[in-house]
Design a binder for these strands. Structure first.
Lengths: 273, 273
DNA sequence: CGTGACGTTGAAGAAGGTCAACCAATGTGG
DNA sequence: CCACATTGGTTGACCTTCTTCAACGTCACG
């Protein structure tokens, strides 16, 4: 899409971690192997020993788990540019499966090569950790989405998230973006059933908020859609990017600002719905 | 509980990462500051700049988010020995809040000191990342729990998880362990309401699977409870611990085993409930 | 001994699931 | 080019699960 697989990787890491010229060049030397996946092809299974890191070049992939009653829960999806399994660097045994939601193309970097460049540029490890951290952050948000919002809000929130992650910069108006998910897949993401997704989509359509067609989402009113989905921009801001170039492998320390002065107890916070 | 705060930290990291004598000694020099928290005291708020890593020494803490309708979703809980916020090493701005579910004691290590020792022993970074990874893994499991299981299974699964994390090694028989959660807190964890938690607990009690009292969980039949909760042991095995001492900062490469030969497409997997 | 916090219960209703049928679009082999 | 199969979407009827609201009980603690 944007260039060679290595370029895509560099661009991605740079979004959250400032990389020096040398670090970028080291990454450029990785030359990930490209793999084509057909729709619904699982490329990592539960229990697999994952000795590589994958990056999505085109298409759409997902991490999922199966409940013992056969229900599938998708726990993350990756758009082009996203890393699939940065966590494998420290946790090679995968506890979830990964599949291509549509025909996709991924770049694969063998862990051995990664470790080699990381040995020379330890800050790259931070870069990968940061990607894994963003994924974790996302899982947490999905937890809130599924745990505390009703069906309509869940779908709205998801679409908002995907719009931003697709690079849209909505301004309260209408726009459309690529979103080739089936209703069954939406169900697997949101913890609902396909039938109910269908009904929710009808409501959103009738309310002139959102129209989903086969491959694209037509957002009719970003403002209201975000309200319905309780979507707060910035929850996935790439801005975790530290502006300074400090890493976890510094040469020197720094003054030490502290936070949370430690407020005393306050009215017990217990909520539920 | 087990010794000095630093010892607790060392023990914890050692569970997933083999540490050399020198690394352990470096950690021992950290001397975390100890903080006492009363029940319901928030010690990290959304948006806080977190310049330290905390470890629970006693009590019980939780990460949570608030939906805009006021509903609270707990997205992780930490038992004594657990790290609260390992992710802060690469992502200092917290997007969730942290609170003490009961009166607790935590050890706090300033990031500056952490970076200092990490500069000398880069593999320690891996150790912290591994903790963060375990937390992420857990969030994913909770996603499956909330997204794909009914109330009874959710509660059963949670209790099973907490039993193992508390150090129990159940053998199909009855046992009890410390679990000082209120029903409202259980609701905030499982995405249910307090009232419904109460009813579910009654059913579990009547079925002679589980009795929850104020501060302790009495598991009456581990086997069946695990079945009801679809709990598969090993999902939280600490065994992510790499037996070898390879890190992401190796001095030399290694032969390169590959996985996932790339099976062709198979019958489309679409499930929902 | 009064006041929270926590647990318990009932009644009613809403949200979402299940089952089943049907439709439209697409693709495939003859 | 057509008959047929497959996938994904749509809808209705019915039922289950969970929530909501409201009341009341109980225990601990100042």
């Amino acid at each position: 899409m944007l260039g060679s697989p290595a370029d895509v990787l560099i661009a991605r890491l740079s979004a959250r971690t400032a990389l020096s010229r040398e670090e970028q060049e080291a990454l450029a030397g990785l030359a990930p192997e490209v793999r084509d996946l057909v729709a619904n092809q699982d490329f990592i299974n539960v229990g697999d020993m994952v000795e590589h890191v994958d990056i999505v070049l085109a298409g759409l992939t997902a991490r999922f788990d199966l409940a013992s009653d056969g229900g599938r829960q998708i726990t993350a999806i990756q758009l082009p540019g996203d890393l699939v399994n940065a966590r494998a660097v420290v946790q090679p045994i995968s506890r979830s499966a990964h599949t291509a939601l549509v025909a996709s193309k991924i770049g694969t970097v063998p862990m051995t090569m990664l470790r080699r460049v990381a040995a020379q540029y330890p800050r790259l490890i931070d870069a990968f950790w940061r990607e894994a951290a963003a994924d974790a952050e996302n899982a947490i948000q999905w937890l809130v989405n599924i745990g505390r919002r009703d069906a309509k809000a869940r779908v709205a929130h998801l679409v908002c998230e995907l719009a931003l992650r697709s690079g849209e910069q909505p301004l309260g108006t209408a726009f459309a973006f690529n979103m080739p998910l089936t209703q069954a897949q939406l169900a697997d993401i949101t913890g609902l059933t396909g039938v109910h997704i269908n009904r929710v989509l009808r409501v959103l359509r009738e309310e002139k908020l959102l129209i989903l067609t086969a491959k694209t989402a037509h957002v009719l009113d970003w403002q209201r859609l975000a309200e319905v989905g309780q979507f707060h921009r910035g929850y996935l801001d790439l801005a975790a990017r530290s502006d300074d170039r400090r890493s976890s492998h510094p040469s020197a320390g720094r003054p030490r600002p502290r936070s949370s002065p430690g407020q005393p107890a306050h009215p017990p916070r217990v909520a539920s719905r």
